[in-house]
């Protein structure tokens, strides 16, 4: 438990460091996803950093690809590549692209264009069923993904095909690029809609390790429904001046002062 909290903290620190060095990147959604990524990579996912393309690995797709500074941080801490590499995020001569790319060790799917992650995860889960493989597939969705029609096609198909090895987690921080989700395009109520689409829906505090852990365990025990975990989160979580501030959704250049202040807030 303490370990996971510490790992999530480290994910936040590395993500902020990456964004500071890149002079661009999305801090708000990276910080809101950090605890979810921590629980997934350090407890849930069956992955092997020495064989990133192992065919029977559990799959993880960051559908909200703009939060990749946090994903790269988690992959680095897991051992897929050196932690110092995150300092080269978005650089011309480096491999850590501004949005996830499968050439990056540990990245299972391209994203950055919202709405395609759940379908790719569905395809992986259907491939597992077809090939009689036992791996599970996890997709982390953002608020924006929930507004894309493609995502709803995937919800429909996963429910129809009863793809129980698929788990979608929504990083529900309620703020999108320009304003509140409820103002831009409100997709609530979520639970009712997805239950009707044939999903097992659970709601948790997305910063509570125990709740995340329990929901993932429940998802694993489902045998004929895909699982949806609505994780309520705080945009910018862990860096006080960013919390719940829409301005930190977008690609941001951090001043040295803001960077130091962020690190201070994230001190153990």
């Amino acid at each position: 438990m303490n370990d996971l909290r510490e790992l999530a903290r480290k994910i936040r620190v590395l993500a902020i460091e990456a964004i500071y060095c890149a002079r661009s990147g999305h801090p708000g959604g990276s910080l809101s996803a950090a605890d979810i990524l921590g629980v997934l990579y350090f407890e849930e996912l069956r992955v092997d950093p020495t064989q990133p393309r192992w065919i029977d690995r559990d799959r993880f797709i960051l559908s909200k690809g703009h939060a990749c500074p946090a994903l790269y941080a988690a992959l680095a801490l897991k051992g897929f590549f050196p932690a110092e590499d995150v300092r080269s995020l978005r650089k011309i001569d480096h491999y850590l692209e501004g949005h996830p790319d499968v050439k990056i060790p540990g990245v299972d799917a391209p994203s950055g264009s919202l709405g395609m992650g759940l379908s790719q995860g569905l395809g992986m889960a259907l491939g597992a069923r077809y090939g009689k493989r036992s791996f599970r597939t996890y997709v982390l969705l953002g608020d924006g993904d929930m507004q894309e029609g493609n995502t709803w096609e995937a919800f429909m198909a996963a429910g129809h095909h009863k793809v129980a090895s698929l788990t979608a987690i929504l990083d529900y921080n309620g703020l999108q690029g320009e304003d509140l989700v409820t103002k831009q395009m409100n997709y609530n109520p979520i639970a009712e809609k997805l239950t009707a689409f044939g999903w097992n829906v659970q709601e948790v505090d997305g910063h509570n390790i125990d709740q995340l852990r329990a929901a993932l365990a429940a998802a694993r025990s489902e045998c004929d429904r895909p699982s949806f975990i609505l994780a309520r989160t705080v945009k910018g979580k862990g860096v006080e001046f960013m919390e719940n501030q829409q301005v930190w959704h977008g690609s941001s250049t951090l001043t040295n002062e803001q960077y130091q202040q962020s690190l201070k807030g994230l001190e153990a």
């Binding site: 065919i55 799959r59 395609m116 790719q120 992986m124 491939g127 493609n150 429909m156």
Partner: peptide, 14 residues
């Protein structure tokens, strides 16, 4: 759209 993106994921399983 779902079919196409799902094909991408499915191909990843061999």
């Amino acid at each position: 759209q779902n079919m196409m993106a799902a094909a991408g994921g499915f191909a990843d399983t061999g």
